[in-house]
Simulated assay, not measured.
Amino acid sequence: MRVFIGIKLPEVSKGQLVAVQEEVKRASLKGSFTDPDNFHLTVRFIGEVDQDQKSAIETALARCAAEQGPFLIETNGLGYFFKKNKWIIWMGIKENSPLEQLYDQLNVSLQGEEMPLAEEVAFIPHLTLGRGIVLAQEWEVLSKVPLPPDQKIPVTALTLFESVRLNGKLVYRPLADFPFKGRTIRTIASKPTNI
């Protein structure tokens, strides 16, 4: 299974991201836009794992969550990565010490479980709006589009997600939630769900 560790977003935050995403769509000729059900903040991509590795990740997540208290993150305008003449456009997150500390603690916890981790260039917290985008205008024009006010998003848990294709559609399916200072909540159903 292909997994990653992330932060779920409340429905109200997803709704606000849809409004921003519509502005990006209007400024684009084409692209693959994130399904609103898939909006999340990736904290650590893992990749393909077996059942033993999944269990080790869950142990690391439980340990990390037990030491973490809730905090807020705040959006911070549009940003992008540029690859092969196409854009990955995202909503940025303001610099946030608790989030950086969580990222560092998570890496330490995963290494404690002897999980092989791919080298990451930098942790750039963001909420992906779309990939493979071809813009119809210059970035400078899009970057000045009026956006909703920055939103404050509560972070109260880490989630282990599985990336799967269901009926040809990419779905980020929560496998287990790890509430801060709390217990693990299994979210996977007996049948795959489009959550």
Rank of each mutant, 00 (worst) to 15 (best):
P116S: 15
Q105Y: 02
S97N: 10
F33A: 09
A19K: 15
R2P: 08
A60M: 01
G15I: 10
L99R: 01
R173N: 07
K86E: 05
S55K: 13
D50F: 05
A19R: 15
D177A: 09
Q151W: 04
L175T: 04
P174D: 04
T75C: 09
D150F: 10
C64A: 11
E119R: 15
S28G: 11
A189T: 13
V24E: 04
A118S: 15
E22W: 06
P36M: 12
P146Q: 06
P10Y: 10
I185Q: 10
E120K: 14
V155N: 02
R63K: 13
R183V: 03
R44P: 03
A122V: 15
D37N: 13
L117A: 08
P149K: 11
D35H: 12
R44A: 13
G112Q: 11
I7L: 02
K144Q: 15
D104E: 13
D35S: 11
L9N: 04
E95R: 15
V121H: 13
E74A: 10
L160K: 06
A122L: 13
Q137H: 10
F82S: 09
F82Y: 07
K25F: 02
K94Y: 03
F4P: 03
G182Q: 01
C64W: 00
P148T: 13
F45H: 11
G132I: 05
A19Y: 01
G77M: 08
R173P: 00
Q53A: 12
R63A: 09
I133P: 00
A118Y: 06
V155P: 00
L106W: 02
E74C: 09
Y103G: 07
L9V: 07
A189G: 15
I7C: 03
V171L: 06
I88P: 01
P70T: 02
L175F: 03
A176C: 09
E114H: 15
N96R: 08
Q16W: 03
